[in-house]
């Protein structure tokens, strides 16, 4: 199962949309850096799948409160996700 990592705002680039198009069943999605702007209110660009992860520090730093369906994680859990998944695909 693949871990997808998106670090771009969905309003700026197609990274999130391209990623969602390339997700298979059971894949995990992690939002980091400006990618966390997709974690707040529904974007109108693409629905974020349930079970999506968001790097908490990046969300807090930006004053973003992620939706309840999103799991907030720290770096340690991020590394665990990398261990649990292969391959790891970054969308930027």
């Amino acid at each position: 199962m693949t871990l997808h990592i998106v670090n771009q705002s969905p309003y700026r680039t197609s990274a999130l949309r391209d990623c969602l198009d390339a997700m298979a069943d059971g894949d995990a999605l992690l939002l980091i850096e400006d990618g966390v702007y997709a974690a707040g209110a529904p974007t109108g660009i693409a629905p974020i799948p349930a079970g999506t992860y968001c790097l908490q520090a990046d969300a807090v730093a930006r004053g973003i409160t992620p939706a309840k369906s999103i799991t907030l994680i720290d770096d340690e859990r991020w590394i665990a996700l990398c261990v649990e998944h292969t391959p790891i695909v970054s969308w930027f």
């Binding site: 670090n7 771009q8 990398c82 391959p87 790891i88 970054s90 969308w91 930027f92």
Partner: peptide, 10 residues
């Protein structure tokens, strides 16, 4: 490597 993680530009 068992895992490769890419850190992409802006």
């Amino acid at each position: 490597s068992d895992r490769i993680v890419t850190f992409g530009g802006s």
